[in-house]
Nucleic acid binder design. Structure first.
Lengths: 342, 342
DNA sequence: GACGTACTGGAGAGCGCTCTCCGACAGCGA
DNA sequence: TCGCTGTCGGAGAGCGCTCTCCAGTACGTC
């Protein structure tokens, strides 16, 4: 078995033409059942597996898509990307995408675009026609990749609304609604002196969660809520909580714009001898695995990441299938997951 | 620009033949410098990008490799894989692989093989010639994928030694040496009543870390060390610590076989009012981001995951380049990272 | 019985590239 | 002058597949 069997071999074994075998394999047009059977046996007999390259050459479809995590400054100390996975949130996105695509026989190519050079490499790779489309998780406001993608008119779908309007489809969660959920819950359980640790205020996710929280709090009679800005990392959550505690020692409820910051805040609270939820209630955002790693387990706004990732896959496939499909966005409703921290 | 430019177009623009353009692009043989220059200009002019499918068809190389995370039972509650990323360890592997491969213009296809069906899908995908080779991170002892890969004689490299001997190259860390490092450190800082939370004892990583720790402890005069088995998750670390504390309330030092379990153990210790490292010292394993998320920050045995991942890439490329390259394994030395927990 | 129609299978032309030949030509020694 | 060697560019044959024709057959209709 030096050379793997080709369509030609199968055709010979089945006593039909290449075209017929191809039709059987791709399920195109009616082929006589008896012949279909013969072909299938021949395929099994020869151990034939289609050559994807040859197929791609003529169909102009690769059957692969790219999953790009973009915009992370990465860490300066290391030439290795992937630190983003320190936030379990990205693992969920990856899992969601794979979970949806896998039954379709499609597997994503994992790419990181964390520096200008790697961004160019990524674009080059995409333009070379290696993939049919891209799913992009962009994590900074200045990321230029969404625009480059749109300009290249490569089918693409974004996770989260881009900071600047760009003609590209995206999927997002109702950040404002999530912020409101957190505020309502905090107030409902008797919180009188709320505070919040926001995400970075140059990205929509940061702005909107904060806005939603503040607006709802205003409705509940808290027109001003102390706020410390973080950047979605555990450490930034600690720093922010430290500051909040120093400036407003009587805080009795905190909304952190993601679970990782909430986790950091919890650590600081404990260091200061504040019990949770006794002295201070804490609500996070995302419902990532970090929420379960907290003690007490975190009450948090659930980001239906897996469903969103699946929707991204669905949307991308639609764009690939129908190049003229209009730019679309879909917003998912967040829900509150009540655990023990609030 | 309905149809993208082809080699033929470039050749025409440069006034040479297709073959010459191909030679210039692939840097093969001597081509007159003046002609090279002309060709390069023509490429720039036409905006030519090579068609990977056509190239693959003739070279029989795809220029892609698979990154497979295999053997996870996944979670029963969800059709989505990727929960493995809850352990930041896997993010590091992914980052390390991408970091090494990316400068070479190679990007991995991300696959999860968490059930028998998906395992078959993965094998089918690989056999279809979609990739040149595979990097496999197998996380359970009964995983059959390594064997299937070896049988398919597809170039592959494993992360960690397989539970059963299989003719396949792998990269691993000195688990025993790591266990010894932990033991020595614990003893050196005065620990008298050590205990350990082991990983699952059906995988080498679990067995060897424990063995290395026990052996070193024996040398230090602790022939018997209480041990509770965990499965590398945070929760299992909690459960194990609970048990250890119940059975041996006077423990003053713990070695957890990975950071996540150490993090869980720390949580329990705190609940029981034990200070760390005052009452109990804690040493983890991996030096993943979880170690930094601990309070106090975790002293841990560093698993040089990124370097190991890079080596996997290097090894895989060698296997792809030279199909007859003998099966190889490379063991990395662990080091101790001293922080505050011990 | 002649014709139109529907359906099925085969022939063959590429898809864009690589790579082996082969020919052209220059340089050099005899 | 002839031929030999070495260098460099071109011709052209595929790589394995899809898909558009086209031919053959069966059947129904008038």
């Amino acid at each position: 078995m030096s050379a793997p069997p080709t369509l030609e071999d199968v055709a010979r074994a089945a006593g039909v033409s290449r075209a017929t075998v191809s039709r059987v394999i791709n399920g195109i047009r009616n082929v006589d059942l008896a012949i279909q059977e013969k072909v299938k046996q021949a395929i099994a007999l020869t151990g034939y597996v289609p050559n994807q390259a040859a197929r791609s050459l003529v169909t102009r479809r690769t059957g692969t898509i790219a999953l790009i995590v973009s915009g992370a400054g990465s860490s300066e100390e290391s030439p290795f990307p992937g630190h983003v996975f320190a936030d379990p949130f990205f693992g969920r996105v990856a899992g969601g995408v794979v979970g949806f695509l896998r039954p379709l026989g499609i597997y994503p190519i994992l790419m990181f675009a964390d520096t200008p050079e790697t961004r160019d490499q990524v674009i080059g790779y995409l333009r070379r026609g290696n993939v049919d489309g891209a799913i992009l998780v962009s994590i900074s406001a200045e990321d230029t990749l969404p625009k480059l993608l749109a300009d290249a008119s490569l089918p693409a779908v974004l996770f989260a609304r881009p900071a600047r309007p760009i003609p590209i489809s995206y999927v997002d969660v109702g950040h404002r609604a999530g912020g409101k959920l957190a505020a309502d819950h905090l107030v409902a359980r008797g919180c009188r002196r709320p505070a919040t640790i926001s995400g970075p205020l140059d990205v929509p996710a940061g702005q909107d969660r904060l806005a939603g929280f503040q607006e709802a709090m205003a409705v509940h009679g808290h027109p001003y809520v102390p706020c410390a800005e973080g950047n979605f990392t555990l450490h930034s959550g600690e720093v922010a909580m430290e500051r909040l505690l120093a400036e407003h020692p009587d805080i009795d409820g905190v909304f952190a714009a993601n679970d990782l910051m909430a986790q950091g805040a919890l650590l600081v609270l404990r260091q200061h001898g504040r019990s949770v939820p006794g002295d201070v209630a804490m609500v996070g955002f995302d419902d990532s695995s970090a929420a379960l790693a907290c003690r007490p387990p975190l009450t948090t706004v659930r980001h239906p990441v897996e469903d969103m990732a699946a929707e991204m896959g669905r949307l991308l496939l639609t764009h690939i299938e129908h190049p003229d499909h209009p730019v679309t966005s879909r917003i998912f409703e967040p829900t509150l997951v009540i655990r023990e921290s609030a």
